[in-house]
Design a protein around this nucleic acid. Structure first.
Lengths: 219, 219
DNA sequence: CGATTAAATAATTTATACAATTTTGGAATT
DNA sequence: AATTCCAAAATTGTATAAATTATTTAATCG
């Protein structure tokens, strides 16, 4: 669904052949994860990520993944390496974007999962969920995929060589490259405000912030 | 409410004088934020944080706050310093734990808010929400408050002196000290595993000291 | 003709009612 | 005495209906 478009609860309920109650609960979960925006008596809208916001999410993910890699590194064994290599191979082999995205996740889990910090891993996953759609666009509409796969192989190689510092640098660079590619792509494909029922006075970062922070009640 | 206890939707609905529908939606939001656990047809339970998990959350918050401080630092002006100092003063003056916790948040916002990254700030806030109850226990039941206020003043002093590196180190140390204090406190109040009716994945490590945490919402 | 107000329509939100599932209690059996 | 099985109660999950609120449309006035 296009970012910014309001969600009609009736339509979703009809589409999934359920009532509006479970639909609303699902939307509220998505809103808490930052994938939906909510305003009282105006319902839910698909959250949009402006280039600066996408970069911000990826920056956070970068910091956390680098740290997770540092923690996971001492516990990485041949089985993890094998699993990561297999994930890369499958990602490179498939034509399905779903499969590619999934194998990407498997690669990350294989390399970072050994850090022994479930909350950190869940948070990284949640952050990835917020940019996944845009990365899929990159893969489908640009040549980002070639670059990503090359960088994935490079990261795995340095890990295999036991060079944590190099791996961290490559990982950081990989995510930054992704942010750059996304920036460039989103700039070229600006939405023109086709769906936009957005007030021009307040910046979108503000509404997005409110959505993400609406859960945390301030007094 | 005690961690691990199931939430009775009827009771909450009666307490707030609404139906169960909005109660369920609220619980689902809290579950997405990690404050509640949910299992199909078993409803919601209050999420519990084992010492290792609390440390994990604080570790993540440390990484993100240090980064946020680095980004905010160039944009910090006298007004931010003034606001932060005022927050510290109010926190030190008050006897209310609610006020203390709130002023703590103001201090953090004053120092980190200038980073210009709303999603990062919202995420830090959300992480803080997950450990806030336990930090309140530290303040109320140990001498952690003295240490925290001293460290807050030290951080502000280094920021004011323009020493970013020192401020980052102090901030990192401050959060680590908090994790240590929490670890020590939770260890000391461990119920010796008397109740073993929990699944091994999420054992109940704390019941005795939780009574004090129920005094948070007194408006 | 444009702006403003009022009615109507549509959508969200909440409440009530119903269905499905789990838990509990106890009787029968081993 | 412990266990198994079954029925009843309790609780969750969903559907439907009523209410509140926002949006749109029509009409009136300047």
């Amino acid at each position: 669904m296009e970012p910014g478009t309001p969600v009609r609860q009736d339509e979703l309920a009809a589409e999934f052949e359920v009532s509006r109650v479970p639909v609303r609960e699902a939307l509220r979960s998505l809103a808490s994860e930052g994938l939906m925006l909510w305003q009282p008596h105006q319902g839910f809208r698909v959250a949009q990520l402006k280039p600066a916001e996408a970069r911000e999410i990826l920056e956070i993910r970068s910091v956390l993944e680098v740290r997770a890699l540092e923690w996971a590194f001492p516990h990485l064994g041949p089985d993890n390496i094998e699993e990561a290599r297999d994930a890369i191979a499958r990602a490179e082999a498939t034509k399905s974007i779903d499969e590619w995205s999934h194998m990407n996740g498997v690669f990350h889990t294989a390399t970072l999962g050994a850090c022994g910090r479930p909350h950190l891993l869940a948070l990284i996953q949640q952050l990835n969920n917020r940019v996944d759609r845009y990365i899929r666009l990159l893969v489908q509409r640009t040549d980002y995929r070639i670059q990503a796969e090359r960088e994935h192989r490079a990261i795995l190689a340095t890990i295999e060589a036991g060079n944590l510092a190099a791996a961290s640098l490559l990982l950081e660079q990989h995510i930054e490259d992704t942010a750059d590619a996304l920036d460039q792509f989103l700039e070229g494909h600006r939405p023109d405000g086709a769906s936009g029922s957005e007030e021009p006075g307040t910046p979108a970062t503000n509404t997005a912030f409110q959505a993400a922070a609406s859960s945390s009640t301030g007094d």
